[in-house]
Amino acid sequence: MSPGGAGAKEAPKYSKKDFESDQDVRWCPGCGDYAILSAVQKTFPDLGVPKEDIVFVSGIGCSSRFPYYMNTYGFHTIHGRAPAIATGLKLARPELKVFVVTGDGDGLSIGGNHMLHVLRRNVGVTILLFNNRIYGLTKGQYSPTSELGKITKSTPMGSADRPINPLAFALGCGATFVARTVDRNIPHMEEMLRRAAHHKGGAFVEILQNCNVYNDLAWNVLYDKDSKLRNELRLEHGKPLLFGPPDERQAVVMEGVVPRVVPANAVSESALWVHDEKNVNAAKLLADLFAPEFPVPIGVLAAIDEPVYEDIMLEQERRAISERGPGDIAKLLTSGDTWKIS
């Protein structure tokens, strides 16, 4: 079966090359976007979706150039509006497999309202949010995910606004699939892309991505080999929240309603926090964990089944037609109060 409500058409056997367009890729050398593009193109042959049924929709920003490089259907639209465009597209063509590519500025600042509503409606689109904590295309202003006090061209004495956490935002909107991955962890990124693409309903993936020109190593906590070993918390359904080097394993546990980090050997097995993707409340706690106090979770925070927007809309249409027959304008025009003048 093909994922995400895509049509029943059999997909041919594809290779990565089939998803590469003829356009020259124009991101800065060293940009994290290259790795994401490559991971997407590598994953897509496994989706089982004919490539003509795939549409990439984007807004404005570095990440939003993405559709030009995919040999699928693509629509590079206006700043922040990709989720709304994708909503209209899914209503018109629910059988298509639609991806939204966005960034921290496009998706959480100018397009924050649309992101909220596409997630709460549970529209069946896969949203890839490249988070580099900076505005790249406009040359280096702070973004809504930049840390407080960030010094940029527009904030020479440091930004005064507190950052938004994309995962907490998505969960707060009622997203039914929320995951985080990292541009420098290719196998994990591929796994998350596959999981997201197969989710029934709206899927939200935050990809921690490096802007080597304006905000290099913003995610060094997960890039530096030693730091990664100490701080990365891999979320796996049914597995306990354990992290750190083998000789210093640590556990995230709940003390009352507060998460705490404790040495793994100090906790009994029954007291471990076992990750459950169906537990959205637990996911909301996980979303807020971050270094240095806590490890940085990557993986699927939540994946739940909820009614899908376009399914409900189309079901209403089918019901209306089955109960009263297809619309007939001639009948409608002469329905109700009419009178004859001779």
């Binding site: 639209t77 597209l89 899914k90």
Partner: peptide, 13 residues
């Protein structure tokens, strides 16, 4: 804005 862009997305479809 979402109202018009949804319409444009539908036209694209």
């Amino acid at each position: 804005i979402a109202a018009v862009t949804a319409a444009i997305g539908a036209s694209f479809g």
